[in-house]
């Protein structure tokens, strides 16, 4: 490990430690609720970008994994201990990601996008059907002792974990392989890379994170029904935030999550009926105006500055 790496690791650890004290601030109610949503989107968008950033495979299925995790908790709460439920949710996410990945990742990216596009809707239909026919109720109640503070700490821990995983992957052969796959899959095969396996591993990682986030968030809903946790808007927001920040750097999505989550709080409060339209408009603006995200813009500007000073 180089000195620079040790320094940034220490800094990151200090930042996380500092953030962990946030719930102890006086009158932290509103701040905490905003922080929970920022932390949640950070984990979701960063783990999304771990897979989609290097491979350019756009997953539109975050909500499917999130909902799955939330449902595992809703179904098992009371009968199974909460930490075990989190592990179960992660496992369920991994199994779903494996199933989707094995079917689609050996083919071109379009099949994958299509498959993930309707996945949340599919699971929603199936869950609704199961509930209507087998349990006879539309939703489920989640009553726990878990407060918002605990949820916040859990999410903070997950965020630290996601960064750690991302950092480890980037240093590894796997990270290098993904980088090559994203550039040219034919070359990747010709230097001996197993593209399908590399993509699958990353997709499973991002699926597990999304499922665990859903499980962590479940107690916050108290009442869970398919249309709430399998909302396509969630998948959409995650993609927007990651793209806004920049999906090609580990810390890129964070740059998008913070302003967007804050802006979103505002929009949801002011224009509750037009959220879908505004989401769409925001998304189009990002795709057209800042295709490489804010981070890409900054890097580009820095690069030009460096060249400029060198010449001058």
């Amino acid at each position: 490990m180089s000195r620079a790496e040790i320094r940034s690791l220490t800094l990151a650890a200090a930042a996380f430690a500092l953030l962990a004290f946030l719930p102890f601030l006086k009158d932290s109610g509103y701040l905490l609720s905003v922080s929970v949503s920022i932390a949640m989107y950070t984990v979701l968008a960063t783990s999304w970008a771990l897979f989609s950033g290097p491979t350019h495979y756009i997953s539109l299925a975050t909500a499917a994994f999130y909902g799955l995790g939330a449902y595992v908790v809703a179904a098992g709460i009371g009968a199974i201990s909460y930490p075990l439920l989190l592990a179960l949710a992660g496992t369920a996410g991994a199994v779903l990601a494996l199933a989707v990945g094995v079917t689609t990742l050996r083919l071109t990216g379009v099949y994958f996008v299509i498959f993930t596009l309707g996945l949340a809707e599919l699971i929603r239909q199936v869950v609704t059907w199961v509930q209507n026919n087998l349990t006879g109720s539309r939703g489920m109640y989640v009553f726990t002792e878990i407060t918002e503070r605990i949820i916040y700490w859990e999410l903070l821990g997950l965020a630290a974990l996601v960064y750690l995983v991302g950092w480890l992957v980037a240093r590894s052969r796997l990270g290098f392989a993904l980088h090559i796959i994203g550039n040219d899959e034919l070359v990747a095969a010709h230097v001996g890379i197993n593209s399908a396996a590399a993509k699958l591993i990353l997709f499973v990682i991002s699926g597990v994170f999304a499922a665990v986030v859903g499980a962590v968030m479940a107690p916050r809903y108290t009442y869970i029904e398919p249309s709430i946790v399998y909302s396509p808007e969630l998948s959409f927001q995650v993609v927007i935030m990651a793209l806004l920040g920049g999906a090609h750097r580990l810390w890129g999505p964070l740059v998008g999550v913070i302003p967007f989550a804050l802006l979103w709080e505002l929009i949801a409060a002011r224009f509750p009926t037009q959220t879908v339209l505004l989401l769409g408009v925001a998304f189009l603006l990002i795709v057209y105006l800042i295709p490489h995200g804010v981070v890409g813009r900054i890097e580009f500007a820095l690069e030009r500055l460096r060249w400029g000073t060198r010449r001058g």
Binding site: F236, Q274, T275, V276, L277, L278, L279, G280, V281, F283, L284, V287
Partner: peptide, 8 residues
Amino acid sequence: GMSFVLVG
């Protein structure tokens, strides 16, 4: 993105 705009 357009699909969301149209839905909206």
